[in-house]
Design a binder for these strands. Structure first.
Lengths: 209, 209
DNA sequence: TGTTCGATGTAACATTTATCACACATGATC
DNA sequence: GATCATGTGTGATAAATGTTACATCGAACA
């Protein structure tokens, strides 16, 4: 397990001394696909770093409607968790395991001092912010500028990209929830994509061509 | 002028010594309403702090379609500028003066060392990120979960809030651009809001009741 | 005063998306 | 293989939004 942490952290630009600290202070957490890692209710004070697997960040409104924002892949962390914890604010999002994942949970208490002390950690944090802003803008773009058929296709491609697999194991219903639309709409548009030979459909499974 | 900077920075939680540095190193910039402060083309390496007035942050796609994201008010800064400059990435947004404004432009070169050195600056920066994430999520909520009539009304209320005025001097066309819809749609919905006695309309001017 | 131009109002229609209803397919289980 | 729960396909219709076209209004100014 230590090797895994080592691999992710050493591969990043974290300096060895800091990597040691992070390894000493954090704890390992395994989550199974579908499980919630962070929710508005949870007041965890840990920053999750993805060692293995894939997390997804979802936004939810008061009525329980959801929308998918972006994925967190190996080596990445949840920038919003950092700000929320530092500010002690309630989180306004869910983080859910998209695949079985291995996380390294780092208590927030040390963040400030690391930011002060390590240039490489400042870079790590600012990188995280940069990437998250980009993803957020990307999410906004999709919703604002694209029609549902394009949004859906983009969603499938993003998922392929993040998971590294051409196969997506989801029902139409699940996809509809992530795009905040209805199952019927997704079924219709997927059928259309199939006719255009961009995908192939099976039960609970979509294959990207 | 120095008084203005003093007022904004001293009122914030920036420690005096840092405030002095910021005042020594930055430069004053005045912009008139409508003028562009930051655009994807500009590769300015300065972080703008709003001393007076109001800026708005807009997202634009390749086809030139726009959408309003959020306002930057007095004492606030553009978090996305920080990350972009640090990462040396192209900015993916426009910052435009919504009102005549006075800005304090701080060269990015000093940011990293200030973050390392001053706890209060770390707080300032993390606050900025937190606020921006919130505003961004808020923008996403509007676009994803609200119908156009509600989005429009929310937009008017936000504008009222940010400007501190019940009067909005904009044409339907301008509003339509910020919401990425058409003038006709805005006219229709504004008329509706007028019938519901939530607003009063005049030429180039909307009054919130 | 009349002209001009940008802003606003509104009808008619097209397109996109949402919703409802129901048929049918598939895989699991007994 | 009969039963059942769940997933998918599709028509019909409604609602929301976008588009086109044109009328009217009001301010500015010749």
């Amino acid at each position: 397990m230590q090797e895994l942490i080592n691999k992710v952290l050493r591969n990043s630009e974290i300096e060895p001394k800091l990597a040691d600290e992070i390894m000493t202070i954090g704890r390992l957490k395994k989550v199974r696909a579908g499980n919630v890692v962070i929710s508005p209710e949870s007041d965890s004070n840990e920053m999750p770093i993805v060692l293995e697997g894939l997390l997804k960040v979802m936004r939810q409104d008061k009525n329980g409607n959801e929308i998918f924002l972006y994925f967190l892949e190996g080596g990445e962390t949840c920038a919003m968790s950092i700000t929320c914890c530092i500010e002690g604010k309630k989180k306004a999002f869910h983080v859910v395991a998209e695949e079985d994942s291995v996380l390294w949970m780092v208590p927030m208490g040390h963040i400030d001092s690391w930011v002060a002390k390590y240039q490489s950690f400042r870079k790590f944090v600012f990188d995280a912010y940069q990437t998250r802003f980009d993803e957020m803008l990307n999410a906004i773009d999709s919703v604002v500028f694209l029609k549902m058929d394009q949004r859906l296709y983009k969603y499938l491609l993003d998922k392929k990209q993040a998971s590294g697999s051409f196969v997506i194991n989801k029902t139409h219903e699940q996809i509809a929830n992530e795009l905040n639309t209805s199952r019927v709409v997704v079924s219709r548009l997927l059928k259309q994509l199939e006719r255009e030979e961009k995908i192939e459909q099976h039960r609970n499974r979509i294959e990207i061509l």
